[in-house]
């Protein structure tokens, strides 16, 4: 890089890239003690360099004051939700990609006790969960509950995988006792689909009928369709 001229009121200096580097190293505090002392001595002798150094440091200070290291994320809740949806979608895609036999889905059954959801609705409870069918190569199966949410803080949602039933069981603790004569019927969830744009998950039974859709309202709270 060619040396550059810059003019002072009385003298013309030849400025080199080394000068440029020294200048910004001084501004950024990248000099050791000896270098700094030598450069500051030079600044005393060179008014033009001193002025340039002062102005560049002022610019640096102004930039730091107006470029925050942390900013408010627009639609922050939606930002998080979308990440969750995309992670779910990736898990589903990975599961599908790993599928080697057409019968794998027959091994993956999750039982949702529909009246539990009805009861949950009565108790103002909503549970959000993403079920990910996750066949692991050789045919072993599993599910992953990605998240759950209970607006009613007295109700706790827990999940576990029951190997004997080959099912993911959703436990809702804290609900009122169920009447002994209540008839409980089950729904087999055969598969689920995530709609990233709608941030929703739809669950289908073994006949391909949609039985439940989980999404979020404008405030980010879970919505169940049809309502419990």
């Amino acid at each position: 890089m060619p040396a550059k001229n810059f003019r002072n009121s009385s003298t013309t200096f030849m400025k080199t890239p080394t000068d440029d580097h020294e200048l910004i190293r001084w501004i950024d505090g990248e000099m050791n003690e000896t270098e700094r002392a030598r450069f500051e001595e030079r600044l005393k002798q060179d008014p033009a360099l001193s002025t340039e150094a002062r102005k560049m440091r002022a610019l640096s200070d102004t930039l730091r004051a107006h470029m925050p290291a942390e900013m408010r994320v627009p639609h922050a809740d939606y930002f998080n939700t979308q990440i969750g949806v995309r992670i779910t979608q990736m898990a589903l895609d990975d599961a599908r990609a790993r599928t080697t036999t057409p019968s794998w889905s027959a091994q993956l059954m999750q039982w949702f006790r529909q009246p539990w959801f009805a009861l949950a609705g009565a108790a103002a409870l909503a549970v959000l969960c993403f079920l990910v069918m996750n066949p692991a190569g050789s045919g072993s199966t599993g599910s992953m509950i990605l998240s759950s949410y209970t607006p009613n803080t007295h109700v706790q949602a827990r999940t576990y995988h029951d190997q004997n039933a080959d099912a993911t069981v959703l436990m809702l603790d804290g609900l009122d006792a169920m009447p002994a004569d209540r008839k409980i019927s089950g729904v087999n969830i055969r598969r689920s689909e995530v709609e990233p744009e709608l941030a929703s998950t739809t669950m289908y039974d073994d006949k391909g009928a949609a039985v439940l859709m989980i999404s979020r309202d404008a405030l980010g709270n879970p919505l169940l369709s049809p309502e419990g």
């Binding site: 925050p68 290291a69 900013m71 994320v73 922050a76 930002f79 990440i83 990605l146």
Partner: peptide, 24 residues
């Protein structure tokens, strides 16, 4: 271990700084 709620907490903790960096 696959806990997305834990990851969601990390997103919440650092989204402001990462967004500032990408924005700048």
């Amino acid at each position: 271990g696959g806990d997305t709620r834990a990851f969601d907490a990390l997103v919440t903790r650092y989204r402001g700084r990462i967004y500032a960096m990408t924005y700048h």
